[in-house]
């Protein structure tokens, strides 16, 4: 394992981590504030990716389609909230799981009907298509750098919003004592709508920036949703800081594990054994990480204590 490869894997892990954060942030906020378990959150990531693909076909400009997709993702989230999710807040978790499971099935199938079952892809825009020379033999795509940066900027914005603004204060208050917030005259319904819309937009944004890197396909949000759950568990439910830390941790663990583990095993075991066990173990790695954290800190790394 050369140093160059290690550096690339670290960057990839960081990039995956920021993507995970964008998804987990919405999940953890929606759960923290409304006590609402939204399995359909991953589908909103898929919707973002398909939206940017569709707008790109229409307009031909990447930047324009990013902006349009964000707006559309927000509107889509608000529509879902208005017609379905609003009726689910007061209900038990099982009902929420069932209803959002139904939405996943519907939207995955709809994506298949509209765009076909094959995987789609779009190119990153011209001005981000190149790569940067990092060391002598190492070049890294500009686009991936930009996604890392975008993820970090959004994380910072979100953190400032939650800790420093009036809306953020209401969100934090709503997460701890929703009845009291409501009694003080805050329109909780509106607050929920805002939180939900922002969550949907973040997941949509993650889908948008992931579209040029990963394949766009029906069901693409399902696996990443489960990883986002793992992130939420590791970070502590309702905690933005926890989600950030856990997302980077999971991103790095997963990416590095896939390359390092097989090589590491080869030092000890024969190659035939390592190439068989390595990949299996690598795909289990983040779940093992989750299990270890559950044993040591069942409440998560940075649990929300009123403050998000």
């Amino acid at each position: 394992m050369s140093f160059t490869l290690l550096l690339i894997q670290c960057l990839n892990g960081l990039q995956y981590g920021t993507l995970l954060f964008l998804i987990a942030a919405g999940l953890t906020l929606v759960f923290g504030v409304m006590g609402f378990i939204n399995l359909a959150h991953g589908v909103q990531y898929m919707v973002g990716a398909y939206l940017v693909f569709a707008f790109h076909q229409l307009t031909g400009s990447f930047l324009v389609s990013v902006v349009l997709s964000m707006v559309a993702a927000l509107l889509f989230g608000l529509l879902l909230e208005h017609f379905v999710f609003r009726r689910l807040y007061g209900r038990d978790h099982l009902t929420q799981v069932l209803a959002t499971f139904g939405i996943i099935i519907f939207l995955n199938e709809l994506a298949k009907v509209i765009f076909g079952p094959a995987t789609l892809s779009i190119q990153p825009p011209e001005f981000l298509a190149g790569s940067i020379q990092l060391t002598e033999q190492l070049r890294y795509p500009v686009y991936r750098f930009v996604t890392i940066l975008a993820g970090l900027v959004v994380a910072a914005l979100l953190y400032v919003t939650v800790t420093r603004t009036r809306v953020g204060m209401l969100i934090r208050a709503g997460a701890t004592t929703p009845e009291m917030v409501s009694a003080l005259g805050v329109d909780v319904q509106k607050l929920f709508m805002i939180v939900f819309g922002v969550g949907a937009m973040l997941a949509g944004f993650a889908g948008v920036i992931a579209a040029p890197i990963f394949a766009i396909e029906p069901g693409m949000g399902d696996n990443i949703l489960i990883i986002a759950f793992v992130v939420t568990i590791i970070g502590g439910i309702g905690s933005i800081r926890g989600a950030f830390l856990a997302a980077l941790l999971v991103g790095l663990f997963d990416t590095l594990g896939r390359t390092l583990l097989t090589e590491g095993l080869e030092l000890v075991f024969p190659p035939s054994f390592s190439t068989q066990v390595g990949p299996a173990l690598a795909s289990m790695l983040i779940y093992i990480l989750m299990a270890v954290i559950l044993v040591v800190r069942p409440q998560g790394l940075l649990p929300a204590k009123g403050a998000a």
């Binding site: 379905v84 009902t95 069932l98 939405i103 099935i105 519907f106």
Partner: peptide, 13 residues
Amino acid sequence: RLLYGPLLVLMAL
């Protein structure tokens, strides 16, 4: 599944 999904939502609600 286009019908099954909404059916689940309605049953849940």
